[in-house]
């Protein structure tokens, strides 16, 4: 009796497990879409390594504000008063904080007080993508460090890995807080949900339709932020780097940032 009941229970257990696995496999089986397929928009901007060159002297307060506002409006970025919960795609900080270790006591006042425009560097060797356990963040072939909010589990490992503070976490739901009583400004772009990481996506959705990133577009007439392909020797960014001395943030870490600052 003892024996047979035991083996019976084992059998039942194993068969349930087997059936469960079978039906799970069944569910995972993809449906045949019959469609002719997917492709990029023919208008999409094509590049091998997108980069931004920021001309610091051309970025006065007004231009900086315009660039930031354009980004935040187009991506429905909430503005939280509490620094600890802030969401930052593009923001400013002083030289001392943007380039720590490079400051000295007798830094020109003009440089010391000037706001530096900071954003995701879309590094060529991005540590955030290296650490992500679900490939929710990864690097595209054109160099854009993308973020898939559908897949992010909110472990925040990428935030620990990013040496530039470019990643923000949705500690709370923007819909029930910042956008509770006001409409998200861009009805054509999603907001985020609580518990996922977000950051600058180099306007991947705009590049796909052939437009420049919103920040670049917003200050186009000043040429303070220039966007282009570093692998293209005739691109505007290459020309600028050829003519001017530029610096990058924390190059010693080997992440190889693709945002350059002409100082």
């Amino acid at each position: 009796m003892e024996r047979s009941r035991r083996s019976f229970l084992k059998l039942v257990g194993i068969s349930t497990l087997g059936l469960g696995t079978l039906s799970a496999v069944d569910l995972l089986d993809k449906v045949d879409l019959r469609a002719q397929g997917f492709g990029p928009d023919p208008k999409a901007l094509q590049g091998e390594r997108w980069a931004l060159v920021v001309d610091v002297e051309k970025l006065d307060e007004e231009t900086t504000r315009k660039a930031i506002e354009a980004c935040h409006l187009v991506h429905n970025v909430p503005h939280y008063e509490d620094y600890e919960e802030e969401i930052k795609w593009i923001w400013t900080d002083t030289y001392e904080h943007a380039f720590p270790g490079q400051e000295y006591d007798y830094l020109a006042e003009e440089v010391e007080e000037r706001p530096f425009l900071l954003l995701c560097n879309h590094c060529s060797n991005p540590p955030c993508c290296r650490v992500c356990p679900t490939q929710a963040t990864w690097q595209r072939e054109d160099g854009v460090v993308m973020m898939d909010q559908h897949r992010c589990i909110g472990c925040r490992y990428c935030m620990a890995a990013c040496p530039f503070g470019a990643r923000s976490f949705n500690w709370k739901d923007p819909r029930t807080t910042y956008f509770k009583d006001k409409e998200p400004p861009n009805p054509r772009y999603p907001t985020r949900t609580k518990g996922v990481v977000e950051k600058c996506n180099l306007c991947a959705e705009r590049l796909a339709e052939g437009s420049m990133p919103a920040c670049v577009e917003a200050v186009k007439d000043t040429k303070a932020i220039v966007f282009g392909d570093l692998e293209d020797p005739h691109s505007e960014v290459r020309e600028l780097l050829h003519e001017h001395f530029a610096i990058r943030r924390k190059p010693e870490l080997g992440t190889s940032p693709n945002v350059y600052y002409i100082v």
Binding site: R130, C132, C155, Y157, G195
Partner: peptide, 17 residues
Amino acid sequence: GKPMRALNVILHPTPNS
């Protein structure tokens, strides 16, 4: 942040992480 998605770690195994 999204505990209900924890199994994504198994669904999308990522050996470099």
